[in-house]
């Protein structure tokens, strides 16, 4: 297995007045291709910060980040945009669908930015929407869908471009437990198809099902391993 994501002494600092918030404080870790990792930790521990750096949405204050062997820190804004488009599929807690576009158009957006032609784009969007069971809602606007359905649209959108890495920041946070389970099942399915999946979650029940857990505290990694072995010094 080769390495998909590698952090080398990643720090992310925010200057708040004369105080410095260390959202990520010297984090080093490796995630291999095809792994399924859950990042857990208390609110404010730096989970989203890590996720945003992994997803090339944000840049670190110091340290090095390699994505699929490439040094992200040296990339231009345009290259970062391309990398996000090609390699990363985002699933957000608040879905982040475009409200003026219908379901089908929303799923087509990343393909459009990838330069996929109209016909092909439509075909692939339809396929992906079918795989998440939304073929009957193509012309609906996001606000006409339930939370679970919206999240499935955003999953379809993340999958449409066939990215290597799926990043999901609290994808079940706004959903009831049944719908949450469905979403989790989909993440497992993606992982089974060979995607590297990084999931942020608060939910112990969910975290315990994930093969590998990275626990953050005040921007530092305090645990990295299988969920079972952490149980004794537990405090989620």
């Amino acid at each position: 297995m080769s390495t998909m994501i590698e952090f080398r002494n990643i720090c992310k600092y925010y200057e708040m007045g004369d105080e410095t918030v260390k959202a990520a404080d010297d984090i080093s870790m490796k995630i291999e291709k095809g792994e399924f990792v859950a990042i857990v930790g208390q609110s404010g521990s730096g989970k989203s910060t890590c996720m945003n750096i992994i997803g090339c949405l944000d840049t670190q204050t110091s340290g090095e980040y390699f994505l699929d062997g490439r040094d992200v820190g040296s990339m231009s804004k345009n290259e970062l945009a391309s990398i996000r488009n090609e390699k990363i599929g985002f699933i957000f807690q608040q879905y982040n669908l475009l409200p003026k576009l219908n379901v089908l158009e929303n799923v087509e957006v990343p393909l459009m930015y990838a330069g996929v032609h109209r016909g092909e784009r439509r075909k692939r969007a339809l396929e992906t929407l079918e795989s998440v069971g939304l073929s009957d809602k193509l012309k609906h606007r996001p606000n006409e869908l339930s939370g679970g359905q919206q999240q499935r649209v955003s999953i379809a959108r993340a999958l449409a471009g066939k990215p290597a890495v799926i990043l999901a920041d609290e994808p079940t946070g706004a959903l009831d437990s049944k719908t949450g389970k469905e979403v989790l099942a989909m993440l497992f399915e993606m992982n089974a198809h060979g995607n590297t999946v990084v999931l942020i979650t608060h939910d112990n029940g969910i975290a315990s099902q994930i093969p590998r857990i990275i626990r953050l505290e005040d921007g530092k990694v305090v645990y990295d391993g299988a969920p079972g072995e952490e149980k004794h010094n537990e405090h989620i």
Binding site: G55, K77, A81, R84, L98, P110, Y113, A114
Partner: peptide, 16 residues
């Protein structure tokens, strides 16, 4: 702004 953020996350370049 949020729409722009989403589009950028999905790979829209500055030029686009």
């Amino acid at each position: 702004t949020r729409e722009i953020g989403i589009r950028k996350a999905l790979g829209a370049k500055e030029r686009v």
